[in-house]
């Protein structure tokens, strides 16, 4: 279903942008309230729930034991995928995975994978025979804006609190999965002609293209993605890149607080 964009909404967003204001009164780089909860799903070896404004995301980590790929006999594997099921909103329709849900899963996957936070060789049980396959599944229950950042936050929080179920597979005692860093995503959407952080559903409806930036602990880039119709300049990117650095540091603290529990 293609969402109908009222011309008045685009007009209003443009007018607000001129006064550096937002429709819900937030500052340009200000996020909505975020709560993060981990270990919240009984059958997940790691799990997280993120409530970000009115956006609600669950992520669960599962392990499976499998034989390694022949060319990498001592490496396990990591896969992250997202399901954008029709519960997430009126505009989502049933059917095979949409390009949107595949993009969502792959962008989050790249950020985590490329940060190198999981040492694939540590997932090896018996070289050439048995390795762990780690699967992060993201479930979007409610998409009310900026679901990419919320999904990435849920995924890394679930991963960082995951317990390897070695006992259940008869290969020793359960242990905490070693995750070396905390890659975090910050996304920006063009609303009323300029970029803002954490767009609401209304801002996304009346907005244009978006840019997703995933940064590692040291502030290095691990994944980038430009989505939707629109173009941007290097200067605009430089501006949001700076903001992304500070937003990612703050979001990383949310994850660290959960691990302290």
């Amino acid at each position: 279903m293609v969402a109908l964009v009222p011309t008045l909404l685009r007009q209003e967003l443009a007018r607000l942008a001129e006064n550096d204001a937002r429709i819900d009164g937030r500052g340009r780089w200000e996020a909505r309230d975020i709560t993060l909860e981990t270990d919240c799903l009984y059958n997940g070896e790691g799990s997280a729930k993120v409530v970000w404004g009115d956006t609600i995301i669950y992520a669960g980590v599962k392990f499976e034991m499998r034989t390694p790929w022949p060319d990498r006999p001592n490496q396990g594997s990591l896969m992250c995928s997202a399901e954008l099921r029709p519960i997430a909103g009126r505009k989502y329709e049933p059917g095979p995975p949409s390009p949107e849900s595949i993009e969502l899963g792959r962008v989050v996957d790249r950020g985590i994978r490329e940060s190198g936070c999981i040492d694939m060789e540590k997932l090896c049980i018996v070289p050439g025979e048995k390795v762990w396959g780690v699967m992060i599944d993201i479930h979007v229950l409610s998409d009310q804006g900026n679901m990419f950042d919320a999904c990435a936050l849920a995924a890394i929080a679930a991963l960082r609190t995951a317990i390897v179920p070695a006992e259940r597979f008869d290969v020793g005692e359960d242990y905490t999965l070693k995750v070396k860093s905390t890659p975090i995503m910050a996304s920006f959407t063009r609303v009323g002609g300029r970029y803002v952080f954490d767009p609401s559903a209304e801002e996304e409806l009346g907005g244009d293209e978006r840019i997703h930036i995933t940064l590692g602990d040291e502030g290095h880039l691990h994944s980038l993605q430009k989505g939707l119709k629109g173009v941007f300049t290097p200067d605009e990117f430089a501006e949001i890149f700076d903001v992304a650095q500070s937003r990612c540091v703050e979001l990383r603290k949310l994850v660290a607080n959960q691990e302290g529990n």
Binding site: L4, V5, P6, T7, L8, R10
Partner: peptide, 12 residues
């Protein structure tokens, strides 16, 4: 044939 000249998609 001129409906479009008066109102287009998204108009309120």
């Amino acid at each position: 044939g001129a409906a479009r000249q008066h109102m287009g998609i998204g108009d309120v």
